[in-house]
Structures are given as structure tokens and as C-alpha cells.
Amino acid sequence: MPDQAEEVRQRIRKLLVGLFTDAQFLSAVPDSASLRQAGVSSNALVSLLVAMEDDFGFEWDDDVRPEVLRSIDSLAGHVLAVGS
């Protein structure tokens, strides 16, 4: 059975697939890779953050550290830290 962090990473990937039509591209992006360097635009990142709020049931703080938004791993870590 996958651990909680893996489940959160999979949910984030599903949200990303909803924003991008190229699921094969996303499957090639490692969880630790920079989303920006992988081609995720600022607009797409904002859309992902809104989708994460809806899916995980929390609100992003205005002062969230930029490194939290870097990768699927860092996003998942934040979700787990806020208790979702």
C-alpha cells in the first residue's frame, strides 16, 4: 500500500494532468524536478494551487516560501505539513 506522501504526490499529478493535455510529458517529470524548469508556467502553477486548495481542503498562506512551490515533492510535503 502506498504511503501517505506517495498518495499526495499522485493526487497532485492528477491535478496537473487536468491542467495539461500531455499526461505523457507529466509522467516523465520526476517528483523532485523543478516545475518551472519542466515547463509549468506561472499561470498553470496558480491554477494548480487553486485546484490543490479545493482537492485537499486548505488555503495557501500569503507568505508561503517559494521553495514550497518548487516541485511535486515540496508541494506534497506542504500538504502533509498542514494536516490534510
Rank of each mutant, 00 (worst) to 15 (best):
38 A>W: 10
52 M>H: 13
26 L>S: 01
75 L>K: 06
60 W>G: 05
56 F>G: 12
82 V>E: 12
84 S>G: 14
44 A>L: 09
58 F>I: 13
57 G>M: 09
13 R>M: 14
77 G>Q: 12
71 S>V: 07
51 A>Q: 11
66 P>M: 07
67 E>C: 05
39 G>R: 09
66 P>S: 06
9 R>S: 06
7 E>V: 14
54 D>G: 07
54 D>T: 06
24 Q>K: 12
12 I>K: 12
70 R>L: 03
28 A>I: 00
48 L>K: 03
57 G>Y: 08
48 L>T: 03
66 P>Y: 13
61 D>G: 11
48 L>E: 02
54 D>E: 10
25 F>S: 10
2 P>Y: 00
12 I>V: 14
78 H>V: 01
36 R>L: 11
31 D>F: 07
37 Q>P: 00
37 Q>S: 15
82 V>N: 10
17 V>Q: 01
26 L>T: 00
16 L>S: 12
8 V>M: 05
4 Q>L: 15
41 S>W: 00
77 G>N: 14
4 Q>Y: 11
56 F>C: 08
69 L>M: 12
69 L>D: 02
55 D>P: 01
34 S>G: 09
54 D>Y: 09
74 S>G: 01
33 A>D: 13
37 Q>D: 15
69 L>K: 08
20 F>A: 05
61 D>T: 01
46 V>E: 07
41 S>E: 04
66 P>H: 05
8 V>H: 03
44 A>M: 10
33 A>C: 07
65 R>F: 09
3 D>S: 09
54 D>I: 01
10 Q>M: 02
77 G>F: 06
38 A>K: 00
48 L>Y: 13
20 F>M: 14
17 V>T: 08
21 T>C: 02
76 A>L: 03
31 D>M: 02
52 M>D: 08
9 R>V: 00
62 D>V: 11
12 I>W: 06
24 Q>R: 14
10 Q>C: 01
17 V>I: 14
21 T>V: 12
3 D>P: 00
68 V>F: 12
39 G>H: 03
70 R>I: 03
76 A>Q: 06
34 S>I: 08
62 D>L: 08
69 L>Q: 01
75 L>F: 07
80 L>C: 05
75 L>N: 12
3 D>G: 08
10 Q>R: 10
21 T>K: 12
66 P>A: 10
39 G>M: 09
42 S>Y: 05
